[in-house]
Design a binder for these strands. Structure first.
Lengths: 220, 220
DNA sequence: GTGGAGCTCCGTGTAAATACGGATGAGCCG
DNA sequence: CGGCTCATCCGTATTTACACGGAGCTCCAC
């Protein structure tokens, strides 16, 4: 498996032991960068307020504010965030609630680093992911519900060239300067820029750079 | 908000978790450079002995030597250092002690990067800064004491109008749309934009929006 | 009551970006 | 092979942005 992104993630769980174990799983996993931890849903909301994670791993059962409520609020306030529910065992009803609240994935806590990475990447790209160890009962519940795994929106993927151009644009180079630097015609650069605007849905280069920053294409 | 310094800061707190969170808050905050950490007051004194921080963020409650004692000793030995007290909740009496010991600011630990930066800059420029979430009780205590809050305003680079326009630009409005929304002539908006570009040193609107995001003028 | 800062407005340009249309070849994959 | 994406290039036109200049007004502080 090969991924081209580095995803910023956060973990919300009330047990420090689990958070530590989670961090151990992230060792030597450069594709996932843990940028914050929360002990409950309230802290998670505060955390997301100041950070900008791509994916949040959220325990369903937490004090103060549980994962389901946190998920609902997160999706309202930060529609772009991708949420993966966590539960200690197959707490079927709660998992379904979590998915209805907007989570796009679900993992049992005794997961492994492979699943962790796969789940994060899948939901980030617009898909859904369920723990392989998901109980038959939960599988049937999901199968019957609207949460059947499918890819909603094709992920916005940028070609290498487009990524280059986005980054150079973010460095305040003009189309002409980018063309010179990349040995391209300025018209080619303009074409790429148009495609980028179209893909990101941005109205102008400002929207594009915000998109780029949000999605980690450009680091500030 | 715009600051022209890069402040060297240190953090003293006995909880590694908090220090890590503190460091997260400093991400993308080029104005604050963390040059050292200490786990207690004693380590803090040793640290300041060999480093020269502009501002020290010091937890009040620490083992070995608490923040209050550390603050007193620091102010005696290094009168130029600026100290901001930290506490997990409104521990009113201790906060007052900390301020009497020479701290020029006080922050609750669940602060944000905006407050962090503002507090650091304010005390560095000779002012005092208290956490916005400071309890009413503490406010009264401070009000009665010699530590009457006042704020030295750092050189304000952006006027209210300019800030408005920056934020609308970040929302991908064109000059014309901004003019309409603010009931201004488009030429006025263009003038403001030119001033903003000049102030930020940005080459175009992309540089400006990156500046705005970096400095908390626009939240993404 | 002078001076500065902020806000407002304007003229005249050039440079750049945005928007629509189109095309060709290379490379990959089933 | 056939279909696809990517990268490359182009024409034409309009809209915005950027850059340089100047000026009058209010408000407030010194």
């Amino acid at each position: 498996m090969n991924y081209k992104y580095i995803l910023k993630i956060v973990i919300a769980d009330d047990h420090q032991m689990f958070r530590e174990g989670f961090k151990v799983l992230l060792k030597n996993q450069p594709e996932l960068e843990l940028i914050g931890e929360a002990e409950n849903g309230k802290e998670l909301l505060e955390l997301v307020e100041i950070q900008t994670p791509h994916v949040a791993f959220v325990d369903i059962k937490m004090p103060v504010m549980d994962g389901i409520e946190a998920c609902k609020r997160l999706k309202t306030k930060f529609p772009d965030i991708h949420i993966i529910g966590l539960s200690s065992y197959n707490d079927d009803n709660l998992v379904v609630d979590m998915l209805e609240a907007g989570a796009k994935g679900y993992l049992l806590k005794n997961t492994n680093r492979q699943e962790l990475l796969e789940a994060a990447m899948t939901v980030y790209e617009g898909g859904v992911y369920y723990s392989k160890a998901t109980s038959d009962k939960l599988s049937r519940m999901i199968g019957k519900s609207k949460f059947n795994p499918y890819r909603i929106h094709p992920p916005v993927i940028f070609s290498k060239r487009e990524t280059d151009i986005i980054q150079l644009m973010c460095k305040q180079l003009t189309n002409r300067e980018i063309a010179t630097q990349l040995n391209l015609s300025i018209r080619t650069v303009e074409s790429h820029r148009e495609n980028i605007l179209q893909k990101t849905g941005a109205k102008n280069s400002i929207g594009m750079v915000i998109y780029a920053i949000k999605h980690g294409i450009y680091e500030i």
